[in-house]
Write a protein that binds this DNA or RNA. Structure first.
Length: 201
DNA sequence: ACGGAGATCTTCT
DNA sequence: GAAGATCTCCGTT
């Protein structure tokens, strides 16, 4: 199956977040291929978006959000968890944009995932942004890599796009109280309506 | 089923 | 020094 290319990622962040539903996220590890179907995403777009790490400009952590579309933005939070994002924004615009992958449906490498999420039912392997990075072994090694390169260990494949009739939207989850209107209410969370693997919040 | 709190450490103020 | 794009455990209903 072909990888998503630069053109795919070089569009408005919110549009890409919607279009990432149904695509495949793959980590080619030494032990084998671990893959899941993307069933939930969130868009973080622009300097103005108070919920985005791009708010108030570049820092050492978020600089990749301002860079080339199709790169990964992986960061550490709450002392325990890695969050996997894909840089997505129009080209030639100095503007931060990224899509958080919030949930997957396990597809390949189920034994590896079970090992990475030991003791938990399959339903809880990848139904949250911190859980799916644990299941796929995604961490600091994967920050700032080009997901479109043929030899990158982490990449996305075209999968199967989801029709509008099967897409649901709502405001984003987990935003702090300092995030005010209109950003707190932007319907920038997308998920596949009939999926059993969306995050539980 | 649901809700609250602790864990744990990086980043930015 | 505080908050954070979260998860898990433990309590009560």
């Amino acid at each position: 199956m072909p990888r998503l290319n630069r053109t795919f990622y070089s569009r408005a962040t919110v549009e890409v977040a919607r279009d990432l539903l149904g695509r495949m996220l793959i980590h080619q590890t030494r032990a084998g291929r671990i893959a899941g179907r993307i069933v939930e995403t969130e868009a973080y777009s622009g300097f103005e978006d108070e919920a985005s790490h791009g708010y108030r400009g570049k820092t050492a952590r978020n600089v990749v959000m301002f860079g080339t579309p199709g790169f990964s933005y992986v960061y550490f939070i709450y002392g325990n968890y890695w969050m996997m994002n894909v840089v997505a924004r129009p080209q030639r615009v100095e503007y931060p944009g990224a899509v958080l992958i919030r949930a997957l449906e396990p597809v390949e490498g189920l034994e590896l995932m079970a090992s990475n999420r030991s003791g938990r039912p399959q339903r809880d392997w990848t139904n949250g942004p911190g859980k799916l990075t644990m299941a796929l072994n995604i961490d600091a090694r994967h920050d700032g890599i080009d997901l479109t390169m043929p030899d990158s260990p982490l990449f996305l494949e075209t999968g199967q796009p989801v029709p509008d009739t099967n897409v649901a939207t709502d405001p984003r989850i987990g935003l702090g109280r300092r995030v005010s209107e209109p950003w707190v209410s932007k319907p920038w969370r997308f998920w596949i309506a009939n999926s059993n693997f969306v995050s539980g919040q």
